[in-house]
Design a protein around this nucleic acid. Structure first.
Length: 589
RNA sequence: GCCCUCGUAGCUCAGUAGGAUAGAGCAGCCGCCUCCUAAGCGGCAGGUCACAGGUUCGAAUCCUGUCGAGGGCACCA
């Protein structure tokens, strides 16, 4: 609908250009916006004002000429110049007649488009370390990433959803060691658990299953395990180093258990947690095409290849025994280590290899959804891609601010290490998947989010998701009653009877329905799911207002048919929109 | 100290690549169910868009500075 009006404006512009109305000024691409105020009609363009200066003309005069040059169209009821030089378009009632049949015919496909057809996009999101269950902070990234991916798919992109599994590195060793130490405790060994170990209950659970299935097969005398380890840092005491302490315990675990047994404990911890995360996300309605292993990058030689390419390109150098990437050449504030003086590659090196691999896999666009605490990481990552000779512009990093939790008006402190956190699973259980999904994407991702657990956990009507779902349930309810009365609700093809929809509420509803494809497109291209949640609330508001103002199942069969078709269209759009958000559309509530 | 994100109604937030009189939802007040689900609807009230300059026909939006909030500045991941 918008495109059709835009075409009219373009052709008017061409005519004016030929007439020389703009002098030697360049003709700009016209912008059409939805009028905010209904008295301004449906669409408006500010073109006359934007071009007035360059064309050395008065905005209103230019606007008048533009109006005069517009081709006649049955779509348009009225065009007028308003304010400082806006051109307002009011659509003819007939312009909306085709909308309802279009929605009902296309059904679930209404709002989808082929905009991104032929382009492959990868969306990588969540990618939390598998050292513990997902917590509510990950939930926001999960909901946001999933909706962005689904939106891009809706406008035609070929979308690849991926989770990067950090299954290598020190944190995983800390987890494995934590599991093993808990296991030793279950075996009856007395020990002081390291302050830097993972202390959550899930670690006990994994240790318990190890003990249950393998008895004492992994038991080692604790004195031997702790022998030679530097003192742990204990609360209130200055001496002691918790990092050195845990590292010594890791080394001891590897040594005492030997490669095979250590590996077994490591894998047990990793797989148990990864399975939990998979299951959790799946129940959250978040599914991936691929779970990409960090370890596989090392095993396939991709990390070494990336490092070699950086060397060849002249962006790697040695200093103090370590290998550095000259990220300052790309605007980073300092150079970064990629191979430590002990010969180990850093996490950053893996990440470079991973992103190199992403681009090699042929994605036209790569989107990373990261927590906002990683923002300092963006310049060096893009820098690395540039250094490798890749187009860093293909990488788009979306930073999601953390949700700050409040309980009883107090900020909730969270730490995976200490085991004090609210898990995503817990949240889902208490507020439900629908509310959690909707809530998480209601705000712009770069906006700090205050997540009031008490409010979210209470089954209160304050939650906007119920408002939207209720609109859907109401339509379903009306249709059930219609069926009971023997009213045929099968939509007839074409625009039959629809010209009876003349009420202000009906007009508003049609206008809102017609915006849906534009909203999906904007939400997808700008990666802003909240545009969709806002839209659905507006649509629900329009519907609830209509519902209260006019009965649908009236005696007048023609009018009744028209109204039923209208609310069928409303139901379809609510379904489509909620579906994109991963929220259910209930038949009754 | 340097960098990033942000500051809009009592609270939580929108504000469509600068546009017309800044909007919702909660909370507050006043109304509406013998009638398709009151998880709803209608109305009232609520604002120096943090502050100060600048850019222009026009600024919540762009630029500069100040204040405030959160985050980041590892041979950790």
């Amino acid at each position: 609908m918008k495109q059709q009006v835009l075409e009219l404006v373009r052709s008017a512009l061409q005519r004016l250009a030929v007439e020389g109305a703009f002098g030697d000024a360049e003709v700009l691409e016209p912008q059409l916006e939805r009028a905010r105020d209904p008295s301004h009609g449906d669409f408006a363009t500010n073109l006359a004002m934007v071009m007035a200066k360059a064309a050395r003309a008065k905005p209103r005069e230019l606007a008048e000429r533009l109006v005069a040059a517009l081709p006649a169209s049955p779509l348009i009821e009225r065009v007028e110049v308003a304010g400082p030089g806006f051109v307002n378009f009011r659509l003819a009632p007939g312009a909306f007649l085709g909308l309802i049949p279009e929605i009902l015919t296309r059904g679930p496909a209404f709002g989808r488009s082929r905009l991104g057809a032929g382009k492959r996009v990868q969306v990588e999101f969540v990618s939390a370390n598998p050292t513990g269950p997902l917590h509510v902070g990950h939930g926001r990234g999960a909901a946001y990433g999933a909706v962005v991916a689904d939106l891009l798919a809706a406008v035609g992109f070929d979308v690849h959803r991926e989770y990067y599994v950090n299954d290598a590195g020190r944190q995983m060793d800390i987890l494995a060691t934590s599991v093993w130490l808990r296991y030793l405790e279950l075996c009856g060994e007395a020990l002081t658990f390291p302050s830097n170990g993972y202390k959550g209950d899930y670690v006990w659970d994994i240790a318990a299953s190890l003990h249950r299935e393998h008895g004492d097969a992994y038991r080692i005398d604790v004195d031997a395990v702790f022998a030679g380890a530097p003192p742990d840092a204990v609360e209130g005491e200055a001496d002691g180093d918790k990092e050195a302490h845990i590292d010594a315990l890791i080394a001891s675990a590897k040594h005492q258990l030997g490669d095979n047994r250590y590996r077994f404990v490591f894998e047990l911890g990793l797989n148990t947690i990864l399975d939990d995360i998979r299951d959790d996300l799946s129940q959250f309605g978040v599914d991936y095409q691929e779970w990409y292993s960090e370890r596989s990058l090392t095993e396939s030689g991709a990390v070494n290849k990336a490092i070699a390419r950086l060397r060849e390109a002249g962006y790697a150098y040695e200093r103090a025994g370590a290998l550095w990437f000259r990220s300052t050449a790309f605007g980073d504030e300092k150079d970064r280590v990629i191979v430590r003086d002990n010969g180990q590659t850093t996490y950053f090196a893996s990440d470079i290899a991973y992103h190199m691999d992403k681009l090699e896999r042929g994605f036209d666009r790569v989107i990373d959804v990261w927590g906002a605490d990683h923002h300092g990481y963006v310049p060096r990552m893009k820098g690395a891609l540039s250094a490798l000779g890749d187009d860093a512009g293909r990488l788009d990093v979306l930073l999601v601010q953390f949700a700050v939790l409040y309980r009883g008006g107090e900020k909730v402190q969270m730490s995976t290490r200490s085991g004090e956190f609210v898990t995503l699973r817990e949240l889902r259980k208490e507020v439900g998947r629908d509310a959690a999904r909707f809530f998480y994407v209601m705000r712009r991702c770069e906006q700090h989010m205050d997540f009031d657990l008490d409010l979210a956990k209470s089954q209160s009507a304050d939650n906007p998701v119920y408002y939207v779902q209720y609109a859907h349930a109401r339509v379903a309810s009306v249709l059930r009653q219609a069926a009971e009365k023997g009213i045929v609700v099968e939509p007839t093809p074409g625009t039959l009877n629809l010209d009876r929809l003349g009420e202000e509420h009906e007009r508003a509803l049609l206008r809102t329905l017609s915006r849906y494809p534009e909203v999906v497109e904007a939400a997808a291209l700008d990666e802003e799911p909240h545009l969709l949640t806002n839209y659905l609330r507006e649509l629900a508001t329009d519907f609830h207002g209509y519902y209260n103002a006019h009965p649908f199942l009236v005696e007048d069969a023609v009018l009744r048919d028209a109204r039923i078709k209208l609310i069928l269209a409303v139901r379809q759009v609510l379904r489509n929109g909620l579906g994109l958000l991963g929220v259910s559309a209930p038949e009754s509530m």
